[in-house]
Nucleic acid binder design. Structure first.
Lengths: 211, 211
DNA sequence: TGGTGCCTTGACCGCGTGGTCAAGAGCGGT
DNA sequence: ACCGCTCTTGACCACGCGGTCAAGGCACCA
């Protein structure tokens, strides 16, 4: 009924202090959501953990759901940027794939909580569309160099989209099961294995039986 | 305080009719949980969908949580059995892998709802341990033939566990994103791609750079 | 010093939740 | 016809949820 929605969603004029609080809430909530689950974590849990009154939450976010949505959007955006930066300036498409896999897994290892939330959100129809969209872009990002490599004859003919999705499957799953399981362990052997497996899958001969 | 817990958990003496109701509740709940999410689906939703009073639910299950746990356990057991049956009588370990991948993906395609719940449960610490255990067995099942193939020199040296996890990652992700996205589409091209990718990854040369 | 927003408080609200239970209904055996 | 057991009913309960709001503090500028 009012018109103060300049670009999208909420938006409020925040001072530096306000911006800080906002970040703090996002951070704390991300941790709690990932640890106990989104639904089992109440808004009261979040504000208690931050150490503020309940009203503070609704000053910065219109709803609990909006908070999650924001965490997810931000996370997907950050991961994409991280990955893009990692392959910037690399010409060779196969090299790009390797760099993309490595940087992607490093990001996931450094942001386990966000990954947990993304995986959760993918299972709830209310949040799934956003996740699917982000995953589609990620797949497209990876499919582009693959398509180029196939055109150049560096990679056997195959559906780039399927290859990209397979790579995402390997990296996400290994990150979720092995790296998250033991956060203190060294992630590099797992990442190396992922790279090797994925490149093997990409470079696999079209015929199922090995040469 | 009583001793009528013969082997584990609830257990009740059910007639044929009772057994049928129990199954019906499991089936209906699986659908609702997968569609709306576990937490957003209330026990009232479930009994309404079945068309019975609320007490019926608590006659067959001690709690909502126990229902989910049962669905998950049953699902993981069924999938494992399906996969074992598919590779029974096959001697060649690489052939076993291919059969395992195919049968696994077929099962997932036929039980999307259960897979959605498994993926959800993996993100909630209350249910995750059970899921992790099931996944560990699945990985071990797949790692066994891989270890044999490596010992026989049919597959380059690598950590069988990591290979197995990678395969699980590919199959689960492709099933979740592509097959679930369009249930009516033909799954075989996706399955073929998964097989090719995974075998390529397994047979990949130890050195990262292609020959 | 006064004033103008940004920010914070926490009691409060309506509601829907998971779970209970006393009271039967239906059915199979005798 | 009766019993005993499995199964069903639905009103009921305490509780904690997401969300609201009138009120007040606090920082910064004039």
């Amino acid at each position: 009924m009012d018109t103060d929605e300049p670009t999208a969603g909420d938006d409020r004029q925040l001072t530096a202090r306000g911006e800080e609080r906002r970040r703090q809430i996002i951070e704390v909530a991300t941790g709690l959501f990932a640890e106990k689950g989104y639904h089992p974590t109440s808004v009261a849990d979040v504000v208690d953990a931050v150490g503020v009154g309940k009203g503070v939450f609704y000053w910065y976010f219109p709803s609990k759901e909006a908070l999650l949505t924001e965490i997810l959007r931000e996370g997907q955006k950050a991961r994409r940027r991280h990955q893009r930066d990692a392959i910037a300036g690399v010409a060779d498409p196969v090299e790009q794939m390797e760099r993309g896999i490595r940087s992607g897994m490093e990001w996931m290892a450094a942001h386990r909580d966000v990954m947990t939330l993304i995986r959760f959100a993918a299972t709830e129809e209310r949040f799934a569309p956003g996740i699917r969209k982000g995953e589609a872009t990620a797949a497209a990002d990876a499919a582009a160099p693959l398509a180029r490599a196939i055109a150049e004859g560096r990679v056997p003919k195959a559906d780039p989209e399927l290859l990209a999705r397979s790579v995402v499957g390997v990296t996400q799953h290994l990150s979720a099961t092995l790296i998250t399981a033991d956060p203190d362990a060294d992630a590099t052997p797992v990442i190396d294995a992922a790279v090797r497996f994925c490149l093997g899958g990409i470079l696999a001969t079209p015929v199922t039986t090995p040469r």
